[in-house]
């Protein structure tokens, strides 16, 4: 089992090394999307009821989910306007990454965030969104000038710190998920194949997975806040 650790099933387009598709990651992200859509659709069915009826259990689930998201993310935004525009984006990131991390506890499935391309694409998305909002809310000229502050010779340092943000943002999620996955597969294949891996799955899959998704979303909010207030 261990000899296949770290191997990937890659579809090469045109037979070259430059452009390949990681099949497992793509299938798993579609599975995650299907799970989220099916769950959302199932919850949506619970809303079709009379006003006078007692609230159904699905309605309560929706309300508690929305309360949770609003409690955690609404205060983090810098302004009300930013919150109204970006709350759904941040919540989507949070829900998708949480479900991606949690899906690894199903035997035979691997989480899509275990492949570096997925965290990197999310981090680049956050990078683009933060700079877009920085330019939109401050004016492009003002925003670009803010990189040469407090002194013009600080420009290279400011640029490097901007480039370092998506790198550390993506490696944080990838390292946590991938480290947990490697640890669990080594534990299962070499040490104790029964019972103990289940606890490690619960810890790395459920606990660390939820914490890292939360951290990813909150860091996205704070990167956007920093770009906006410059």
């Amino acid at each position: 089992m261990l000899e296949h650790l770290g191997e990937k099933l890659v579809l090469r387009i045109g037979g070259s090394d430059a452009f390949g598709l990681d099949i497992v990651t793509i299938i798993m992200s579609w599975v995650v999307m299907a799970v989220i859509i099916a769950f959302a659709w199932w919850l949506r069915q619970g809303l079709n009821q009379d006003v006078e009826e007692e609230p159904s259990s699905r309605l309560v689930v929706i309300e508690s989910l929305m309360n949770l998201l609003e409690e955690q993310f609404s205060d983090a935004f810098e302004s009300e306007r930013l919150q109204a525009q970006l709350f759904s984006f941040i919540s989507t990131l949070f829900i998708f990454i949480t479900v991606s991390n949690w899906i690894a506890i199903v035997p035979g499935l691997s989480s899509p965030t275990q492949d570096f391309n997925i965290p990197l694409s999310f981090a680049l998305l956050v990078f683009i969104v933060s700079h877009y909002f920085g330019m939109k809310l401050n004016g492009t000229g003002n925003y670009l000038k803010s990189f040469a502050e407090p002194y013009p010779f600080m420009l290279p340092m400011n640029l490097i710190s901007e480039i370092a943000k998506p790198i550390s943002h993506s490696f944080r999620l990838f390292g946590n998920v991938f480290g947990g996955a490697v640890l669990i597969s080594v534990l299962t294949a070499k040490l104790i194949p029964i019972l103990l891996p289940a606890f490690f799955q619960a810890f790395y899959g459920l606990f660390i997975g939820a914490i890292q998704a939360f951290v990813f979303a909150l860091l996205a909010v704070s990167y956007i806040n920093v770009a906006v207030e410059e």
């Binding site: 983090a76 550390s168 490696f171 480290g179």
Partner: peptide, 26 residues
Amino acid sequence: DSLLRTMVIGQAITESTGIYSLIVAI
């Protein structure tokens, strides 16, 4: 509430050096 959130962000940022060493080791 706000302290907990700031703590989690701070820990996540502190953790990145550990994650880099994990990546290098792997």
